[in-house]
Structures are given as structure tokens and as C-alpha cells.
Write a protein that binds this DNA or RNA. Sequence first.
DNA 1: ACATAAAATGACAGCGCAATCATCTTTATT
DNA 2: AATAAAGATGATTGCGCTGTCATTTTATGT
Lengths: 343, 343
Amino acid sequence: MARKSTDRSGRPTLVDVAKEAGVSAITVSRTIRSPEIVSAAARQKVEAAIRKLGYTPDPAASALASHSTSTIGLLVPSLTNNVFSDVLRGVYDGVEGTRYFVQIGNYRYSALEEEGLIRNFLSQRPAGLVISSMDQTPAARALLESAPCPVVQIMEIADRAVDMSVGFDQLAAVRAGARHLFDCGYRRPGFLSARMDPRAQRRLAAFRDFNEAAGVLDDRRIMTTPQPSSVGMGRLLMEQLLSRAPETDAVMCNNDDLAVGALMEAKRRNIPVPSMLGICSFNDIEMVRQMVPSLTAVASPRREIGVRAIAMLLAEIAEPGSVADRHVDLGYQMIARESTSRR
Amino acid sequence: MARKSTDRSGRPTLVDVAKEAGVSAITVSRTIRSPEIVSAAARQKVEAAIRKLGYTPDPAASALASHSTSTIGLLVPSLTNNVFSDVLRGVYDGVEGTRYFVQIGNYRYSALEEEGLIRNFLSQRPAGLVISSMDQTPAARALLESAPCPVVQIMEIADRAVDMSVGFDQLAAVRAGARHLFDCGYRRPGFLSARMDPRAQRRLAAFRDFNEAAGVLDDRRIMTTPQPSSVGMGRLLMEQLLSRAPETDAVMCNNDDLAVGALMEAKRRNIPVPSMLGICSFNDIEMVRQMVPSLTAVASPRREIGVRAIAMLLAEIAEPGSVADRHVDLGYQMIARESTSRR
DNA sequence: ACATAAAATGACAGCGCAATCATCTTTATT
DNA sequence: AATAAAGATGATTGCGCTGTCATTTTATGT
């Protein structure tokens, strides 16, 4: 025999609400999704019934019937990285108060894992996708191009974004840092970078280009490692740099952890900063400005990128094609502090 | 007319695979979910068909039919906090390679928001829930108690956990830090704490209790603020502490940000650490040990908590009631470093 | 060889909701 | 007052999968 729908789980359904309110199921559905097209009288009856029964819609049934979910997928290469925890915060601030949920995928700097995650996310019919990379595999790119939902790529400015993008000019930002060191009179600058993913590689290239043009490039002063970034790694790289190229008078660090590590290593060796060693960081998390001496940094708009990405996604979900500025450059800021201020 | 299922979305369904493989739909379903109960011959046909058609199951349909999803809900009070980003990493490491997904809810230190999120998560029929608090509203507790899925509460040891729990004895950990300062000969210890949520309150109470018993308590040396924790806040609190109680010879910091801030403020004022000022941190993120001088800390097993929580959840999902140790104490570690080492 | 148990497979219904199209009111228009 | 247009509501159907139970096939023991 057909069981009543509440029998099994004790959970009321649309039909239960409809009966309670004396309307049809579809009217209940409409009251929830677009209350403005339901008469005030019906709406009130339905709302009362919902409250009385403690009804909550079943997202699975909704997803199945409508072929879309309220999930926004977010793909990041790392959860450890401070950069992405700021982006994450922006993203969560962005969805706050909307009906959307964020699901995070961590592809751990692997393009192959990224492709798998994209496939996986798409099979869930997400409302939208935020992806923090421009370096997908061809297959992943193809998946994104034919994705049935809006996609925002974040972090870099887009010469080759699939759909929309928000970021800043990473190369110009690195050049700004290099130029700052040069302008402060440092003539033997080094470069520290961990985790040499494509983005880090590009930034290193930008650093080399600028310094080569300025006539102050020496590849002996470029210290990199494929290992993850950390403060300890910053100290290690700094140590290696100083033993290989003791003449080094400044370092550009590819992120904040490394810069703090470099500062600590300088402190341990009693190398005065900024007089004997200038330090410029990249990204500018809060800690950086609280160091003593405070660290000069190229600041990236991490949280804003997250917020804006969600805003673009939501606008595009609400009305496809409605987003006019599909490629947004949020800029960077060169913030001079004590670690490069020698007069 | 009934349309073929592939017509609309171009996406193959279970039925399409079944036809291709010459078996019934349910056999395909079983091949995916429990291949061991399908004959090798059928399995191979099905797998070939799946590959050929590029079939991916629709999680929404599965959720609707089976009344359960592959989503694990994770509720944290903050995304900014370093502590939770480590837990997050552990959680993601834990689900890595399983069929489960993590969905994060950020209740921003609000028990009311937490209750809303619990309600919301439960309406999605999650496979399990991880919750980083013991201080729910009564309504939220009731929801959790009747939740149709396993629940793990993390961070603290459980005197009143709903289902399972993983954490460590936060109060004993704080006492260990306070004792360490005492044992190092510091007799005028202060305490810095931001964001006075219930857990921070309890830790402060533990600090007071120990120091009162040791006869070295002075409430003037307890500096707190309801604002969020940050390195800058650590500096500010340290500054206020020193101006209010200049005799202070040590500080216990309620987390790493504050400790780093305290160290920086000491450095700015040329107060030698550890000789004139001892510093003990709480949690011990990587940065802390790389400071110069390196910071003594009470280390918390953050990542392990995440990993273990997921392990318990998965075991319990696989076979309800199978987890024997339902309340796990992962312990803490008192790590003495330079910032308290005065001989 | 036969009976019996176990393994493998399938038919069918239904999960809870929303798209579609049809029907019925109400309001505006001439 | 007649008619059109807009607004509100409902009946039906199916989304893609899995639970249940019945049926068929294969293995096991005597």
C-alpha cells in the first residue's frame, strides 16, 4: 500500500504542507521560490503551514527536478596557503545570506587532480564554479568551456579565461616590487620562492625581466624550491642565498611566509634590516605589517577577489549574460614600510 | 511522448548504460556501489559501457532515492583563525580519496548562526557532521541529538558531547603553560586573549585557577578583548598590559597570533625575551617556532583532530556503532623554546 | 543425480520536487 | 457591458536513482 509521505522519515513534504494549507503542492513550491507570484492570502496560509509543520525543502529532490543545485564549487590549489584562506573568507562573505553553499575542492597544485575535481563538481550540477588557476589541462579547459554554469577564474588577469575572471596583474605587481627595491638603492637583489607552480614561475620570470633590464640581475641570487612555502623555508632559502651570494643586499620574496622567514634569518645573523638588507614581501597578510621592522610588501586584493568572484557568479546565475565587466582587474598596492626604508 | 533520457542534457543515465551493457539498470547501480556482489562478467560489461558513454552518476537522484548524500558538514566558528585552517587541512586530508565531500559552514562565533547552519545542513541529509563547539543552543543540541547521521564534536574533550568527540584537554593545556612559566621562575605572569568566546573564557579561568593556587595571580595582568585575534591585536594588548602592569615578567597568550604580536611589541620596546619577559604561546603554528627568539608554546593537535574526526565519522557511517572509542583525547604538548629559557 | 542453499539479477515502485501546460479568477480596456 | 489581458492556481508527469522483493542462475553437499 502507498504509505503516507510522512510515515518513513517523519519529515513533512511539500504535499503535507499543501494539505495543511488547503492549496496544491505547486503553490507551496512557488511560495518558497517566488513568493511574489502567489496571492497574499495563499502565501499566508502556506507560510503558516510551513511553520506549523516545520517544513524544510529537500534539496536533493529540488536538484533532481530542476536540474540545478545551490552549490558553488571553489577549486583551490592549497588550503595551507594564507593567500587562499583570505580568498576563502571573501568567498564565504560573498555567499553569506544567499541561498548558496560553497564546496571546496583542493587540487594540491596538481593539474590532473584539478581536472578530476572539475569533472566531479560538474557532475553535481553546480550553480557556479570559482577556479583559482589559468593553467588547466586541455581536457579540463574543454570541460569548463562547455560547463552548464557560469565559471569565474580568479587571481590573475585573464588573457585566456574561459568565462569570467577576477584578479590582478601578478607580473606588474612583481615588477613594482622589484622597481621599489631598485628605487630604494638596492643593487644586488635576490629572489626567494617556494612551491614553483606555474604562477610562481611567471612571477620569477617577471622579476628576472625587470632586473635584467635594470642591469642588476644575477641568477645566483635566485633561490627556489619545489617544496611548500613556510616561514621555516624562508629562513632556509635566506640562509642558502647568503652563503651562495653574500653580497646580496635585498630580497624579493614570493610570498609572506618566506618574507617573515627571511626577516627572522636576518635577525638571527644580526644583519640589520633595512640598512644592510632590504626585504619586500608579496601578498601582505596582516602579520607582515606587524613585524619589527614592518615589512614592505606588494599587497594583493585577496579577500576582494573572493567577494567579487561570488558577486559576478550570483549576477550571472540570476540572469545569464547580465555581467558586463567579465574580466575584472582589482589591482595591487605597493606598500613601502620599514624593511626597505633606508635614508 | 516520452523522450529518451539522453535527449535533454546530453548526459547519459543509468538506463543508457544498462542498455549499452545489456543488463538491467539496477545491476549498473550495484556495479558502482558494491561491485563485489556483481559477477565479474557483468561488471566488465558495465564498466566498459560506463567508459564508453562517459557516464557519471547524478548525486541528486541518488540522494533522493537513498535518503542520504556524500556530504560531510563541517561547522567552524571562523575561517580566519589559523587553528581552524589546520583542522580544515586535516579534514580534507581525511576525506581525500573517499567518495565524500566536505561542506563548510562558518558560524562566526555565533551560537544562533550555528543553530541555523545545523538546521540547514541536516535538511541536506548529510552523511555526517563535524562540529567545533560544545556550546550549542539547547535547540541546536536537540537537533544534533536526533540527527540521522553520526556527529563528531571537535577541539575539546567531551564531558557533554552529543555523539562522538575528538580533542584535547584545553584546560590542562593552559595549566601546563602556566606551570611552565612558573617553573621557569616567572612570578608576575600576564594573560592575553582576544575573541572571548566560551572556549577562551574557560582557558582564562584555567589560567587564573592555576596562578591563584600558585600565589602569583594578579587580575590587572589579564588583558582581554572581544575583538578578533591578530598579530596587531597581540601588540596592542601587550602594550596595554605593560602600561597597566609594568612589573609583568611573562605572558601566556591564548593563541599564536597574539604571542607573535607580544614578541614584536617587546622587540619594539627593546625588552629582552626571555630574560626580562617570558612568552608562552598556545596552539603552535609553524611560524611560532621560526621566530627569533623561537616561541615556547603549548601545541595542540589541530590537523590530527581533523583527520581523526573524519576517520571516526567514516567508520561510523560504514557501520553504525562500530566505533568503540567514541571520545578521543589526542593530548597536547608543552614545547619549551627560547622565549622562556632564561638560565 | 538430486535437493538445497547461496549468489546473481531483474521488475517495479516511489523518493520529493519543479516544468509544463491547462484552467480558472480577477482586473483593465474599449 | 463585452472582451482582452493579466494574474493566480492546479493536474499531470517525470527527473535518475535505489529499496524491496521476486526470480533466475550457479555452487554445494549427499
